[in-house]
Design a protein around this nucleic acid. Sequence first.
DNA 1: TATTGTTATACTCTATAACTATA
DNA 2: TATAGTTATAGAGTATAACAATA
Lengths: 180, 180
Amino acid sequence: MAPPAVKKQTYDNGPEAAAPVGGVLNDILGYKLRRAQLATFEEFARHFHDLELRPAELALLLLLKRTPEAGQAELTSLLVLKRANFVALVNRLARRELVERSPVDGDRRARKITLTTKGLSLLEEGEKRQRAYEQQLLQILGGNRARADFLTALDRLINLAETRDCSSTPRRDVNQRTSG
Amino acid sequence: MAPPAVKKQTYDNGPEAAAPVGGVLNDILGYKLRRAQLATFEEFARHFHDLELRPAELALLLLLKRTPEAGQAELTSLLVLKRANFVALVNRLARRELVERSPVDGDRRARKITLTTKGLSLLEEGEKRQRAYEQQLLQILGGNRARADFLTALDRLINLAETRDCSSTPRRDVNQRTSG
DNA sequence: TATTGTTATACTCTATAACTATA
DNA sequence: TATAGTTATAGAGTATAACAATA
């Protein structure tokens, strides 16, 4: 019934060769970025598969807890999702009774998404896993400073679209040093 | 006929809010990683859409030029693709006459993939774009040192699966300092 | 007319299973 | 029997268009 957190690992095609060490592609930043992203998603799945939570699902639950007043438009914006896809996301969680939709006073078009008790208690376990997962990544990256630098780099890339045309001032970090 | 390099930008749903500044999700590494990866793919598309090359397509052409002796199994492994999906990738490029399949002496099951003249000349333009693209990312990241550190971090995440179970020795970088 | 939530739909990427022809 | 290439198919993510109800 509930969706599998992420796909399994290779079967038919063999172990799929972990890293193309020495290949031409090692110099291509976008290529490594994609591979790293896939690796972290797989790791996410290992941490969360028994809770049957996918990244977007956990993210929505977190947002609902921390920003309970957020409307649907704001939530889709924060999650960087299209409205249409947000509906399906909420449907999945609502079918599991983790969230509810309710009317909004003052605008009969709008609907409010709220955590149920069940959703909140699942989220509490999810938050534990999340902390453990982040802790693991922190160690892999080599400490707070390395993590902060890494997040800074990611922020710069995320803001790439904005820096693109304005040829100067190529920055605008959103990141906060987690320590020093 | 030829595949579009990447999807267009939002229409129906508004500008989709660039960055969830201050949101809960800013602390979640995997979330930022995904967003950064999407941003670089969009930027890739801007550089390559008129060549009608997607990331995997460029990567294969690069590999074919630098590793012309590689068999199909090796290529799929280097690209971290499933055999089944590699076929479709080659089909697209073969339909555009950028690559060719030819028999291999000594194993009548195997087929060799080679660049055509047309493929090579497209690739030469592609390599120019690729250098410009990497240069852009280099500037965004803030120089060679920042880029090298970033690649190191990505390598560590890519090797995450291997470091996972063996609780000590959480490393194994593949990266070479681009400068210093 | 514009906006909110929604449905329907399509395309890309990734994954699995199973076939074929060789080995 | 195992392997190389292939086909078919399915799932997850992301994209667009269009509609009903409401503003």
